[in-house]
Design a protein around this nucleic acid. Structure first.
Lengths: 184, 184
DNA sequence: GTCTATAGTGGGATAGAC
DNA sequence: GTCTATCCCACTATAGAC
């Protein structure tokens, strides 16, 4: 098991987080139990509590990983100066959420454990959206739309015949026009 | 305990749903267990299975109630022809979600159990949004934005100092301009 | 000191017999 | 309606092996 966490975690803790990620991504949140996590590592559940104070501490590490990867995806989307940064960021946002649905849910389902997360990580991930939208309020509206469309898609809430691509296109168009008319 | 459910449910089943709603709204989803629900009604958990096949059947009734109430709120918001129907609907959407956060979550957290819900209920709730936005794709983008902003607010995901009102205003402005430029 | 295990608490959904 | 029972969960107390 490859470890993760850099100098945030001990090597053994990094291995546990890596195993937790595999379980979460493959089998979903309900499968991520301390018992099963321990079993994947050849140990018993109580032993995990020597490495993490509680289950939430494991989840916090997964959230940190998801934030790092999201920030990287955003930075790649606008690298070199995209002509349509909003479109590029929307595409990157949706693509990451669809590629890692359970990780994405974990990242957005609950209040952010800001005090347990590396400093500046949240701001780094938000930066490209803020830059593309030009104002904090518009950036939050854009985030809201992206998050809502992603969750409705992940939760299978659209009617079976719905054209989700078209909804994203209409949403991105609205955000683009909001940006240009902002100072009118 | 006042019963609900009309002719969808037996009187006793209606009482159970009404109790379930009270528990859910007051104490949240994790408090809505079959044991506690039974205790509130002076019975034991296994007895509930005489009235509902499983816990999900109880939840479906709560979802149906939330849909009815949402549809009514939308209809009231645009009754008599609001000058700014998008603004009015956004306000009604956010207000309902904030007034009934646990019910709202239940309604959107999972795939819609369409086959177990009264026919036409989903379309009735969606109607005012579709009408206000003028096109299905735009209506879904608007729904996405409203849902995303609501969930981020309910999940306490915005930074503590964030101006959520301003984000809604920026979002509604974007949707308004999307509507007017739609046929350009 | 660091890793592990066993055993137990208290909660949950649910099935079956009465 | 009841009861008992099965199987899941997070988590804790305790203690033994290295």
């Amino acid at each position: 098991m490859t470890a993760v966490g850099g100098d945030r975690l001990t090597p053994r803790a990094g291995e546990i987080v890596a195993a937790a990620r595999r379980i979460l991504e493959r089998e979903g949140e309900s499968a991520l139990t301390m018992r099963r996590l321990a079993a994947h590592l050849g140990m018993k559940a109580p032993s995990l509590y020597k490495h993490f104070s509680d289950k939430e501490a494991v989840e916090v590490e997964l959230i940190a990983i998801a934030f790092e990867e999201t920030a990287e995806a955003f930075e790649a989307a606008v690298a070199g100066g995209a002509q349509r940064p909003i479109t590029a960021l929307a595409g990157a946002y949706r693509a990451y959420a669809r590629a890692h649905p359970h990780l994405y849910r974990l990242m957005t389902d609950r209040p952010l454990p800001r005090e347990r997360l590396p400093e500046g990580l949240e701001a780094r991930a938000a930066g490209p959206i803020l830059q593309a939208m030009g104002a904090v309020a518009s950036a939050r509206a854009a985030w809201g739309m992206a998050h809502g469309l992603v969750m409705l898609e992940l939760n299978d809430r659209f009617p079976p015949d719905a054209d989700v691509d078209a909804a994203w296109e209409a949403g991105v168009a609205a955000l683009e026009s909001a940006k240009t008319t902002e100072h009118a």
